[in-house]
Amino acid sequence: MNYWLIKSEPEKYSWEKFNKDGRTFWDGVRNYTARNNMRAMKEGDLAFFYHSNEGKEIVGIAKVVKEAYQDPTTDDTNWVVVEFSPVESLKKPVTLAQIKAEPMLSEIQLVRQGRLSVSAVKPEEFDKILEMSR
């Protein structure tokens, strides 16, 4: 299993809305590194759901339920979407400030490539963030 982090501005698409919808496709990604991460996702992989701009915190866990396919919002075949469903809310959101303060997370892509909307998370980083959320 691989682990990921997907970002959304809460005023555009919040964790609450995602839970209400029950499933969504992640569209609008127009960065090649983020796109390549989406292409690498496999059904069953887990992803942290991160509220960007407002909040700046990981609030929940999502699961890949359908692997990458052509983004229906564009005719450009360079871009893909992946479908997710919510798994669970974190007991306690983990903020960007907390992540930056944790030495074990100093190399996480969220910190190193802060503008990346879809990033990989190493298993030990995933476990550490889960621990921080309890």
Rank of each mutant, 00 (worst) to 15 (best):
S106K: 08
T77K: 15
K128E: 03
A120L: 15
K92H: 13
P86H: 07
L90C: 06
Q113T: 14
E124W: 14
D76G: 06
I99N: 03
V81H: 08
L90D: 05
S117G: 15
G114H: 09
V81G: 01
S106M: 12
L96K: 08
L96W: 12
E124C: 03
E88V: 01
I99Y: 01
V118N: 08
E107M: 13
P93R: 04
L105I: 12
F126E: 03
L110M: 15
K100Y: 03
V94L: 06
A101W: 10
L110H: 08
P72F: 00
V80F: 07
E125S: 05
S119D: 13
L110K: 09
D76Q: 12
I99P: 09
K91R: 10
E131T: 12
E107C: 05
V82S: 02
Q109A: 14
P93W: 09
P86F: 04
I99K: 02
E102M: 14
F84Y: 10
S119C: 15
G114Y: 00
Y69S: 04
K128T: 11
L116H: 00
F126H: 07
Q109D: 14
G114F: 07
T95A: 10
I129F: 14
S85H: 01
P103S: 12
K100G: 06
K122Y: 14
Q113P: 10
V94M: 11
D75F: 13
I99E: 08
R115W: 04
I108E: 07
S89V: 09
D75I: 04
D71I: 03
E88P: 07
V87S: 01
V80N: 05
D71M: 00
E102I: 14
P93L: 02
S106P: 13
V80Q: 01
W79C: 01
T77Q: 11
T74W: 13
K100S: 07
K100L: 01
K92E: 12
V94C: 09
T74R: 03
K91S: 10
I129P: 00
D76I: 07
L116N: 03
N78T: 08
A120C: 13
V80H: 01
T95L: 03
T95K: 00
A120E: 15
R112E: 02
V87G: 04
D75R: 04
L130Q: 06
